[in-house]
């Protein structure tokens, strides 16, 4: 376990999570959520949970992003609040 690497990963995850809920453009929010998934996948691998990291990368980062893009395309792209 490498402490500086952990701290950098957690910092990136916090930045991605806060950016995903504050940005107004919903398509950008979906893309930032994909980046969040990949950083989360790196963190799972760092914690030696390779199977969970595999599931996170395949489900949340690929299929989940596609489904969320479909949802954005079906509704409005700009958020009201």
């Amino acid at each position: 376990m490498i402490i500086p690497f952990d701290i950098i990963l957690i910092l990136f995850i916090f930045i991605c999570a806060i950016a995903a809920i504050t940005v107004k453009d919903l398509l950008s929010a979906v893309m930032i959520l994909g980046a969040y998934s990949f950083f989360m996948c790196l963190l799972w691998t760092q914690m030696a949970a390779v199977d969970v990291a595999f599931t996170e990368a395949s489900v949340s980062a690929s299929i989940g992003t596609v489904l969320l893009i479909g949802a954005v395309y079906k509704t409005k792209r700009r958020s009201k609040d």
Partner: peptide, 17 residues
């Protein structure tokens, strides 16, 4: 090894997507 039916099925679906 890591992986299995669920992850493999999702990657197969990703190729179709």
């Amino acid at each position: 090894s890591p992986g299995g039916g669920f992850q493999g099925g999702v990657i197969l679906a990703a190729s179709f997507v």
